[in-house]
Write a protein that binds this DNA or RNA. Structure first.
Lengths: 197, 197
DNA sequence: TGTCAGTTTTGACAAATAACAATGGATAAA
DNA sequence: TTTATCCATTGTTATTTGTCAAAACTGACA
């Protein structure tokens, strides 16, 4: 399957398109390859593109005043990534986005995305729906953060994204869950409490 | 200004519409009035509508396993509210949405919203853009929750939403910030630390 | 094969925040 | 106005999670 076909098959989960529309859409994307540890978004630069992951894993994070990393998002195959807020407003980024593995990405520029959305109602529908799903996803994450303990959040994450847990370093996962890498280590290595009976 | 005009003026922040389009859009909305303490969304019922606030204040919250409230969202004039995730998926809600004051709301049904989005590319654009802003907003909230202490989160909230702080009860604000009402009280009544010089 | 950088683990101690309990003020209904 | 309920405050103690420091592990590569 070509990269364009991979985008197309993702697209068709949301909207039904003609051959021509598929070409119109996917031809706006450009393949890029990034090596592990390479950055595709950095603070103070306007993110000109967003990225669809064909292969590999990435991580978006901010660095707090205290100098610590806080992971905002992961992305693997079939996910999108950028500094979302900065991208849609075309403002300087506040995040880093870095490759956790060697990656193949499909890149679309902000202008091309605008063009696509203006060109065809169905493309607009696709982006609208995708954005609604993001909103719902983030709201669920906020609910989990508000209502669950660190251990529960870890268990929920491993159940929801078992593949991801295998592929991301533990310090990155810890900072996504809002805890330190040491504390995550302790959670993982908790001995089951001896039965009180 | 009529209620329809209020929706129209909100709309026009995002898309430029003709007279007819404005009527087409706003005529789908129906005014409802709810009294303080009245619920417009409850767990286990599918939220058939979302609501645009003409007047009043509301609060969306979940109840955790331990029986405590966790505020997910507030809404005052010009904001929208529902159980977002359940609304877009038309699934039973997990939230309560309750009026904190007597309210006047403009209600649109899920079906009417779908119709509008299908009918006119510009309406689709409006909903897409609004959803993008929600995504960006929630992402900023997650970043704040990950990177800031309780006191800092409170200060950021009061700076960002000074009007809201005056109108919502403190227990609701505390649960939005992810802290107990007692701890919020302590934060607010902190005496400035005596100068060490 | 050994070395080194990056990562994870472990333990002792500290900080942030919650839990509990009691009190007093505010508000709204009777 | 009285009464009952809800809400905010305050003090004390308990829990969760962070900090710091050291050691153990891992995998890439010289």
């Amino acid at each position: 399957m070509t990269n364009q076909e991979k985008i197309a098959s993702y697209l068709e989960k949301f909207v039904h398109l003609t051959e021509n529309e598929i070409i119109e859409f996917t031809s706006r994307f450009k393949e890029i390859r990034v090596k592990k540890r390479q950055f595709i978004v950095q603070p103070d630069f306007v993110p000109k593109s967003r990225y669809f992951v064909i292969k590999g894993a990435l991580r978006a994070y901010v660095v707090g005043d205290e100098g610590k990393d806080h992971t905002i998002q992961f992305a693997i195959e079939d996910w999108w990534i950028s500094d979302y807020d900065s991208y849609i407003h075309q403002q300087p980024a506040s995040m880093f986005v870095v490759a956790l593995e060697d990656c193949i990405l499909m890149q679309i520029s902000f202008e091309d995305e605008q063009t696509l959305k203006a060109l065809n109602h169905k493309f607009e529908t696709f982006f609208r729906y995708k954005s609604e799903l993001s909103t719902a996803f983030l709201q669920r994450r906020i609910i989990t953060n508000l209502t669950k303990s660190a251990k529960e959040r870890y268990d929920i994450f491993t159940e929801s994204f078992p593949k991801l847990v295998q592929r991301v370093p533990q310090y990155a996962l810890a900072s996504y869950l809002g805890i330190t890498t040491q504390f995550l280590s302790k959670i993982r290595n908790l001995k089951p409490v001896p039965n009180k009976s």
